Computed example of a mutant assay.
Amino acid sequence: MNTSNLLKLVFLAAIWGSSFLFMRIAAPVLGPGVLIEYRVTFAAIFLAVVGLVLRKRLDLGKHWRHYLILGFFNSALPFLLFAFAAKTLTASVLSVLNATAPIWGAIVGAVWHRHMVSRRVMLGLALGTAGVAMLVGFDHVSSKEGAGLAIAAATLAAFSYSIATTYTKVAKSAQGVEPFANAHGSMWAAALLTIPALAIFPQPGEPTVGIMGAALALGVLCSGIAYLLYFGLVRDVGATSALTVTFLNPLFGILWGTLFLHEVVGWYTVAGAAIVITGTMLVTGYKIKLPWMQNTEAA
């Protein structure tokens, strides 16, 4: 991975880590339904403009069912769950819980393919569970009213991502669909699927310019631009190297929460995040490659 791609990777992690900051700012005022409807609609419009410029087709007649499935499990459901949890949990806790998605993916994949996981994966699962338990057990946010439900919602959101990942790997309907089309089509599908949530989660407050700015940033920056960066990295350095962003997201989630929301970062936050990231690396089989090591990974 050259310097340019490394900077893109760090920038992508910073963007995705900031999504929890923006949700913490906007969710208490807009509510989960309105906020996420804004997010996916802004992202869909942005990607539509990019698609027109790049002349990218969606082929809705052929792939609409695929877009609906992917839009539900990869966007609508996890976004709503994280936005609901953001009313109670800190950006730091949210970002660490989000990092457990690959761990859940290992479980879903094992069940789907009906095979036993390796000892390495089992150790990763145990570490991930221990890290989350340490984080939520010691963090003062766990004593808040509704914290248990919020933690369950955020965990279910990470689990939803793992279902989406498994689906795109094994489902016939997902094969042969261009990555940009996946991002673009799934956002329009998510915008449609999120509509019922507007009735379930009414808007509790009146938005300010800052609140709407956070919603716009969630859609355009954290969804639209982030997807373009991610798929570009997958193309340039390979999926395994691009997956490194999963390990960096919590670092930026904690950083932004500390800088802008003045969240308290205790030893348990750092230790819990480190344990979860280590568990995730074991589960995904990721191997650290130092700059002086020969790069044998196919791009």
Score class of each variant (00 low, 15 high):
residue 1 M to V: 12
residue 146 G to T: 12
residue 85 A to W: 03
residue 75 S to G: 05
residue 214 A to M: 06
residue 243 L to Y: 09
residue 134 M to D: 04
residue 9 L to P: 01
residue 203 Q to L: 08
residue 97 L to R: 08
residue 287 K to H: 14
residue 161 Y to F: 11
residue 32 P to K: 06
residue 233 L to S: 03
residue 159 F to N: 07
residue 30 L to M: 08
residue 188 W to N: 01
residue 297 E to W: 01
residue 151 I to R: 01
residue 123 L to M: 14
residue 146 G to F: 00
residue 20 F to L: 06
residue 3 T to K: 13
residue 245 V to Q: 12
residue 92 S to Q: 10
residue 160 S to K: 07
residue 6 L to N: 12
residue 155 T to L: 14
residue 242 A to S: 05
residue 26 A to C: 10
residue 149 L to T: 15
residue 99 A to M: 09
residue 67 Y to H: 04
residue 175 Q to I: 00
residue 149 L to V: 15
residue 27 A to K: 01
residue 59 D to M: 09
residue 226 A to N: 06
residue 36 I to K: 01
residue 119 R to C: 14
residue 223 S to M: 11
residue 227 Y to P: 01
residue 92 S to M: 06
residue 280 T to L: 07
residue 55 R to I: 00
residue 27 A to M: 10
residue 188 W to T: 00
residue 132 V to R: 06
residue 69 I to V: 15
residue 33 G to M: 09
residue 57 R to T: 15
residue 296 T to F: 05
residue 42 F to C: 13
residue 181 A to D: 09
residue 291 P to A: 05
residue 124 G to K: 04
residue 101 A to M: 11
residue 163 I to L: 14
residue 71 G to E: 01
residue 14 A to E: 01
residue 131 G to P: 04
residue 1 M to G: 08
residue 247 F to E: 05
residue 114 R to F: 06
residue 154 A to L: 07
residue 38 Y to H: 12
residue 184 H to F: 15
residue 232 G to Y: 03
residue 249 N to W: 14
residue 297 E to C: 01
residue 4 S to M: 11
residue 118 S to I: 12
residue 104 W to A: 09
residue 54 L to V: 12
residue 3 T to W: 11
residue 222 C to D: 13
residue 175 Q to M: 09
residue 265 V to T: 15
residue 115 H to M: 15
residue 162 S to K: 03
residue 150 A to L: 01
residue 254 I to S: 09
residue 157 A to R: 02
residue 134 M to C: 14
residue 229 L to M: 12
residue 284 T to V: 15
residue 154 A to I: 12
residue 33 G to Q: 08
residue 48 A to R: 14
residue 216 L to I: 11
residue 159 F to D: 07
residue 284 T to C: 11
residue 110 A to M: 09
residue 272 G to L: 00
residue 268 Y to R: 12
residue 12 L to K: 03
residue 193 L to V: 00
residue 143 S to P: 08
residue 102 P to D: 13
residue 232 G to Q: 04
residue 21 L to W: 11
residue 116 M to C: 13
residue 96 V to L: 06
residue 194 T to L: 14
residue 235 R to M: 02
residue 178 E to C: 04
residue 223 S to W: 11
